[in-house]
Structure formats: C-alpha cells, structure tokens
Design a protein around this nucleic acid. Structure first.
Ligand code: SF4
Ligand code: SF4
Lengths: 149, 149
DNA sequence: CCAAAGGGCACCGATTTGGTGCTATTTGGG
DNA sequence: CCCAAATAGCACCAAATCGGTGCCCTTTGG
C-alpha cells in the first residue's frame, strides 16, 4: 500500500524525541505522556529497535532508551528496513539478500527490472534522510538532489 | 508496508504490454495467456483502469483495452494513485485533497511536516517514471536527477 | 444467434496491521 | 531490604487489507 505502518511512525516520533535528549535515557512512558500514542505499542516498538541495535536500553527504575549512534548516522531507510523488512515495491528479489523470489511471473516479468530501478531510487531518497534532518528540518538543506519543475 | 499491491503490478504488466500494441485493442485473455497471472484479476484491474480513464475499452467479440493516452503522458504516480489511493507514507493529510487527518497525534506530531517532505520527494520520483520509460528502459536516460554516490 | 469479450458487484480466505495481556527480570531509591 | 518503575519476551486477538473468485448482465463481430 506504499504507506508506512503505524509502528514505523511511532518509532520515528520516539527517535526524534530521543535526539533532543542526547545521551539521556528516556522511558517509553515519558513518550506516551508527551504524545497521544498507545503506550504499550511504543514500548514494543522500542524493544524491537533495541534488538536491532538502533537504540541502547537501560533497565530498572531510571531506565529507558537512548540513541545507539549519532542522529546523523541513522537513516530513514534503516529504520524502515528494521520495522517493515527490506522488500520494497515488489515481492520479488528484495535487492539486499535472501528471500528468493516466490513470484510466478518472475521468469517472464517485463516490469521487474524497470521497477527495481525505481525501487532503488526510492531507497536512495530514504537513505539520504537522517534522523538529524527529521528532527531539525531547517538545519540542513536536505541535499535537494531532485531539481524538477 | 511500502510495497505495491499485486493489483498494481498486474496493471503495470498489462499497461506495458499495451504500449507495444499501440492503438490496438488487447483482450484480458491475451494478457493472461502471455503471462502467468490470474486472468480474472487482470480483467478486474483493467476494468478499474477503464473507469478511471487510463485506458479505453471496446466491448464485444473483438474487444479489449488500449491506452487512452500516449505512454509518455501516463506516469507511475498516476497508476498507483488510481489503484491504491493517493495517501502515501502517512495516514494523515493525503496532500492531494479531502480525507481529513483522522490521526490522534496530528496536532502535536513532530514528524508530520518532515515526513511529508519525504513523501513529496517520493511522489516526484513516481511522477517522473512514465509508461514509456517502463516499457523501453534504455530509450530515455530516465532524467537521472539524483546524483548520489 | 452465439461465442467471445467487457461491466458490475458481492463475496471469501489469507495475510498484515494495530493493539493488548501476561509474566519475568532488572534496578534505583526509600 | 524491598518495592515501584522500567525493560524483555512472547503470545494473542480484532480489524483492515489483499489476493482472488462467483455470478450474472450487456455488447458485438462473425
Ligand atoms: S516478478 Fe514481476 S510481477 Fe513478480 S514480483 Fe517481481 S515485479 Fe512483481
Ligand atoms: S500526524 Fe504524525 S503520526 Fe499521525 S499520521 Fe501524520 S505523521 Fe503519522
């Protein structure tokens, strides 16, 4: 459906919030208090981000989550890949590795190659959006590669 | 899930095939014979494309479908919009019209604006891929606006 | 007049998505 | 020393979406 899942959006909200608390450990509860999001779901998403190494976690009373790396080094492409999996646009050939194409059309598919080119372009867009640029949109000019119209 | 639906893929396969038959009316059956796709589904998709004015249809014995406009004037963005709806990336503010944001977070959402910028970039990518460029990938250099890496 | 084709629309099973329940473990502070 | 707060893990469910069919009607060329 060419749309982010709510999980991804919640992750982005949480991660952007973490950018402001550089280094500090922020609890899932604090996030749920600040934004009208389902507390448990945000917690679940943060756990997943921890498992994948995007954030560090500290347990116990004063625990919480913090970015595992500088905000400028974490890309939107990476976040999406962690939460929704790599395959973009088509179900064949994820482009990264594994999950061999289970599509019946693949051998004679006339759009596979061109669509994959489009997919790569979209991945490029997502790869050039960093957490830093999401948190402070006005800071960087966002590279502005497309010069259309 | 940031992935096209099968309906969209079948539409693209069909439309690309229509490009080669410039002007001729091609039946859904012919398409299903040529590619291993569910005949009925392809037919259903073509009907939808007809309703939205992307293809012309002719009924009766020698009937079928043909492109309603030059292949160079039909963009991937348009096709996707017809089959999957306009909203891209987020569920708030489709960016085109209507469907007022039903998201609870919207008033205080910190990622809405930046994400919409990304969404617009992706729409740009899809808007610059024409049916012509999908059918004959080597003909045009595909504009190549992004000059990364 | 009939077979081949499209038009309309409802419907179903499988998958995905959004969200919750429950329990265990860690840990700082009173 | 113990409890409240917090993460870790994992199962589970309801709703939405998606892939695909069934059924019947209308058009039209041979
Ligand atoms: S092979 Fe063609 S139809 Fe099958 S998933 Fe890839 S692009 Fe889509
Ligand atoms: S308001 Fe924020 S959370 Fe809600 S849909 Fe838009 S971007 Fe996503």
């Amino acid at each position: 459906m060419l749309q982010f899942t709510k999980r991804t959006e919640y992750a982005l909200i949480a991660l952007v919030h973490l950018v402001d608390r550089r280094g500090e450990f922020v609890s899932a509860r604090e996030l749920a208090d600040r934004y009208p999001v389902p507390p448990r779901l945000v917690a679940e998403v943060l756990k997943e981000l921890q498992r994948e190494g995007l954030v560090d976690s500290q347990r116990g009373a004063a625990g919480g989550y913090a970015l595992a790396r500088p905000a400028a080094d974490i890309t939107l492409a990476e976040i999406v890949t962690v939460l929704e999996g790599a395959p973009l646009l088509t179900s064949c050939d994820t482009g990264f590795a594994g999950t061999a194409g289970s599509c019946e059309v693949e051998p004679t598919c006339p759009i596979r190659s061109p669509i994959h080119r489009v997919r790569d372009r979209i991945r490029d867009v997502l790869s050039h959006v960093t957490l830093e640029s999401l948190a402070h949109p006005n800071a960087l000019p966002m590279v502005t590669p497309t010069e259309n119209r």
